[in-house]
Amino acid sequence: MTTSPETPTEGIPVSDLESQTAYLDAAATTKRFTHPLHTPWLDNVKRGAAILDYGCGYGRTLDALDQQGFDNLCGFDTSPGMIARARSLHPAMRFVVLDTLPALACPDASIDVVVLFAVVTCIPSDDAQLLLIGELHRVLKPGALLYLSDLLLRDDRRNRDRCARFAESYGTYGVFETGDGTVCGHHPSDWFTSLLAGFETIDTRRTTVTTMNGNTSTGLQFLARNPASRHQTPTH
C-alpha cells in the first residue's frame, strides 16, 4: 500500500469488495456473534495499547477487551446498523462506519493490535481478502499483533453439498449463499496461512463456534505478528 500516513487508501467501492452491508444492517438487532476472545494471547499487551476491531459488528469483542482493562479501543464496520447498535450498547466507545473499503482513516504504523473476527468469511473474493490484509499490514506498527478468527471449510455432507452447488456460480469451492440472503465463504487452514504470509505466526488454535444462523462450526484462530524492522522494537 502506498497510502500517506494521514489519508486512507484510494477508494475501492464497497461493492467491489463484495460487502455484506445490506444483510448486516437487516441482521443488526437479531444476530448474535460467538467467536471467543482467547485472552491469554493478549496477556503481554499493554492496557493502553491502540486496539482496532475491523468488522466490529455490535461491539461484542471490544466489550470483552474493555472488561480486560484495555482502554484505547476503536471499532470499524461497513454496516451502519451494526454501528448504531454498538454505539447504543457501548456509548463510551468509539465506532466508525466504513464507507470506502478496505481503507482505514488511520496513519501508517499506528495500531498495536488488530482484531479480525469472522470477517474473511464475509468476503468471498480472494483478491478482496488480500486487499484487506494489506491495509491492516499498513496500519499495524512493526511488531504489532493481528488476531484473526474465522471459519474452516468443513467436510460434512451438508457443507459439501452446498459448496458444490454454488461452486460454478462463484468460480470456487467453499463460497455459498445462505437461506437468509448473504454470501459466505469457508476456507481450508492453508488458505489462512497464505493470507497471512506477510506476518509471523505466533500461535494457532481451533475452537467451536455457533454461526449467525445457529449452526455449529469449527473456527480457526491465528495470532500473528507484523514483522519488526531491524531498528524498531515491538510495542507489547
Rank of each mutant, 00 (worst) to 15 (best):
M1T: 11
M1F: 10
T2C: 12
T2E: 15
T3H: 13
S4M: 08
P5K: 10
E6P: 02
T9W: 08
G11F: 10
S15V: 03
D16K: 09
E18A: 12
Q20G: 01
T21V: 08
D25T: 08
D25Y: 10
A28G: 08
K31M: 14
T34Y: 13
P36H: 06
P36W: 07
H38C: 09
H38D: 12
H38Y: 14
H38R: 12
H38K: 14
T39N: 13
P40H: 09
V45H: 10
R47T: 13
R47I: 08
G48K: 12
I51R: 06
G55D: 04
C56I: 07
G57C: 08
Y58C: 10
G59I: 03
G59Y: 06
L65D: 06
D66I: 02
N72G: 03
F76N: 00
T78N: 13
S79H: 03
P80W: 08
I83W: 09
I83H: 07
A86W: 02
S88F: 07
L89C: 06
H90F: 14
P91M: 06
P102H: 05
A103F: 06
A103K: 07
A103Q: 08
D108H: 10
S110G: 11
S110H: 12
I111N: 02
D112R: 05
V113K: 03
V114Y: 02
L116S: 04
L116F: 14
F117A: 10
I123H: 00
I123E: 00
I123N: 00
S125M: 00
S125Y: 00
D126F: 01
D127N: 07
A128W: 02
Q129E: 05
Q129V: 05
Q129N: 07
L131Y: 02
L132G: 03
I133L: 14
L136M: 13
L140S: 02
P142A: 08
L145S: 05
Y147R: 04
Y147Q: 03
S149M: 12
L153Y: 00
R154C: 07
R158C: 06
D161S: 09
D161E: 15
A164E: 13
S169R: 15
Y170S: 01
Y170N: 01
Y173Q: 01
F176L: 00
E177C: 03
G179Y: 02
G179N: 10
D180C: 03
D180I: 01
G181I: 01
T182W: 05
G185Y: 02
G185M: 04
H187I: 00
P188T: 05
S189Y: 04
S189P: 04
W191S: 04
W191E: 08
T193C: 05
S194Y: 13
L195T: 01
F199K: 01
T201N: 09
I202P: 00
I202Q: 14
T204L: 07
R206T: 14
T211A: 09
M212V: 11
N213P: 03
N215R: 14
T216V: 15
Q221V: 04
Q221P: 04
F222N: 03
L223I: 09
R225Q: 13
R225E: 11
R225I: 02
A228F: 09
S229F: 13
R230I: 14
